[in-house]
Amino acid sequence: MDVLGYIISKYNYWGFVLLMMVGMYAMIVKNNLMKKILGMNILQTAIILFFVSTSAKTKATLPILEHGHGDHAIHAVDYINPLPHVLMLTAIVVSVATLGVALALALKVYKEYGTLEEDEIFEAQKKKLNPEMQEGEVNS
């Protein structure tokens, strides 16, 4: 089988896979929390696009019967499946909400540590822990 043809004929799916990988890469590798959040959003978007794309059809329309029953035969091929699109409305809401919570938390982290770089945050956490421990030893 012609591999190239195979890849090209499903180019949209390959695109989503690529997007997903980009998102995952950012979430795993990046040091900056904001970049991770962006990566997360890309990942979610990739999945949304995947769903939308599954029911996309050229030369088809919404499944609303203009003429009612009777006059025409109804061909499934003329209509797209609206369900994945509808589902993705929910998924979009979810992804926006996740983004909101993530940003709020990132803001809180920034207020606490003055940075969004993860290594600096760990550094700050260690620093914060150590004087605390020394203090604790004095106390106890």
């Binding site: 979430m27 929390l33 991770k36 997360m40 996740t98 919570v101 993530a102 938390l105 990132a106 809180k108 982290v109 606490e112 540590y113 945050i121 700050a124 956490q125 914060k128 605390e132």
Partner: peptide, 15 residues
């Protein structure tokens, strides 16, 4: 004292 760490770990949890 933990509020900064809580936010940070919640963020990791989100990811």
């Amino acid at each position: 004292q933990n509020s900064g760490r809580a936010a940070h770990s919640a963020l990791n949890y989100i990811f």
